[in-house]
Design a protein around this nucleic acid. Structure first.
Lengths: 166, 166
DNA sequence: TTATATTTTCAATATTTTTTGAAAACAAAA
DNA sequence: TTTTGTTTTCAAAAAATATTGAAAATATAA
């Protein structure tokens, strides 16, 4: 396969997967483009590479920096900003977990804690409390597991996976 | 907290979390409604409970059945169909993993296998191949881990979590 | 200081996704 | 068979989300 076709497919597929997961497709494509770029790129190169507007490129580059997946590089003597992606995949996964856990799992846990105060004193509230109890248990376990993963370094990370698949 | 307020918050929050994860908000709300219902509900009760149209209720009930999260119950002598949610949370998680793995992870793995055929013979293709290699390794491990989880029963499931948090 | 290069913002526009609701299809009862 | 209750479909409308592009802001150089 030719490198150009490979890049094309990779960027497209990375974007597709992200949008399935509720992440802006273009943000993921910018990420993919930077991941496979041997050198940092300028905003113009990103615009050109994905055929997107300056505003779009800027917004998504900023979002990727918020997620800790992309960094800025300033070259001395140059006025333009360069962008490069974090290439250590363990770090990429870790950053994604940190970000999504904070924005998605934690608010859910908070609501579960609140609604756990409902009194189980009728069929309706009994069923409700049982379901909430089970989901809370599971979510708390997931939360702990994610905390462990976040703290783990690459080696640990691999080990955990290995342990899981036995 | 009153049961009605609790239900309200739970349904809203379940829907919010789902839509963060790329799942239709209403589908998740229907799921939440059925999860906390002591008895199976009819399509009309779902429409009423969430203030949605018949078409919407029907489509999302069907989608939930596709995911294996909701089942139909026919009461003898009655013409209406009743719906109830799978309440074993391990099973719920397992079904979600099965479904999303098939629709999202597997297509990505396929593309990664394809693009792994690019020859690393220039800086551009070398960087590309390195990134693809790392992502493939990671995705394959994730895939194996998910297979293990899918096969695991509740007990195993708990054990794996416990092992992970040490 | 002013001129110039670059980035950021955001209202307007375009696109995608979701929802509606009425008609069609279906299935049980009369 | 026809009638009646129920579910399904799907084109049109609405809502949510993403994108553009030009103006404003910022920063460096002259």
């Amino acid at each position: 396969m030719e490198i150009q076709e490979g890049k094309q497919k990779f960027i497209e597929s990375w974007g597709k997967m992200a949008s399935d997961w509720g992440i802006n497709r273009t943000m993921a494509q910018v990420h993919a483009l930077l991941l496979i770029a041997p050198e940092p790129l300028t905003a113009d190169e990103v615009m050109e590479g994905l055929s997107i507007s300056r505003g779009n490129a800027n917004m998504n580059l900023r979002a990727l920096m918020d997620w800790g997946l992309v960094h800025k590089q300033l070259k001395s003597g140059e006025r333009k900003e360069y962008f490069y992606a974090e290439k250590d995949m363990w770090t990429v996964v870790r950053q994604i977990i940190v970000h999504r856990k904070k924005k998605e799992l934690e608010p859910m846990l908070k609501v579960l804690d609140e609604v756990a105060n409902v009194e189980p004193n009728c069929p309706e509230s009994e069923t409700f409390c049982n379901v909430v109890k089970d989901i809370r248990m599971l979510s708390n376990k997931a939360n702990q597991t994610l905390d462990t993963l976040i703290k783990a370094d690459s080696g640990w990370f691999s080990n955990i996976f290995l342990r899981m698949v036995r």
